[in-house]
């Protein structure tokens, strides 16, 4: 099996939540440096999200991605900065393509999910609203902004433990 096929197989396994935890970071690292792998990654996502039956239990891949993101410091890019390194054209185009791919995924999943909550949903101690805690979009939102809050909070993120959808649902 050639290397490219192996990468795609790992990608597919990751999509199915079956890739070993120790292999996931390497794969994500590869995605960062390999535009072809990035395209495959998002293509798989678009296909998977489009075909996924919203009634089926969600794949927990997002929490593992969030875990990988948590362990990777967010790149903070001010609109205007002193001493920062500007992105070159190729990098900008790559990020633009990735953002566009994600937007397509979000748009697609939103259109396929008419039951996306339009009213406030609450998960409190002992009560959880499945749509709010087990739905991929909301979980990713929550984890992303919780991670960003930690990075900006005076209480260092190093002094905190992970928040996963499971712990949110438990509370």
């Amino acid at each position: 099996m050639v290397m490219e096929d192996m990468e795609l197989e790992r990608l597919s396994a990751a999509m199915d939540g079956e890739l070993d935890d120790e292999k996931l970071p390497r794969l994500l690292g590869g995605c960062r440096h390999d535009p072809a792998l990035q395209e495959s990654w998002y293509a798989f996502h678009v296909i998977g999200e489009t075909l996924r039956d919203p009634q089926l239990p969600p794949v927990r891949l997002h929490s593992r991605i969030a875990q990988a993101l948590k362990e990777e410091p967010t790149v903070l890019v001010p609109k205007s900065s002193v001493g920062s390194v500007p992105l070159d054209g190729a990098t900008q185009r790559r990020w633009l393509a990735m953002a566009a791919a994600i937007a397509v995924v979000v748009l697609t999943t939103a259109l396929l999910r008419p039951s996306l909550p339009a009213n406030p949903v609450i998960a409190q101690n002992g009560q959880s609203t499945p749509a709010s805690t087990e739905n991929g979009v909301s979980d990713r939102d929550i984890q992303t902004f919780v991670a960003l809050h930690r990075q900006g909070s005076p209480l260092s993120e190093f002094q905190t433990v992970d928040y996963t959808p499971q712990t949110i649902a438990q509370r």
Partner: peptide, 20 residues
């Protein structure tokens, strides 16, 4: 311009509260 579905989600987990 994205087709963002407005929604509000309030969750509380441990000491963190969340609103969107």
């Amino acid at each position: 311009g994205e087709d963002f579905h407005p929604f509000q989600a309030r969750l509380q987990s441990s000491a963190l509260s969340y609103y969107s």
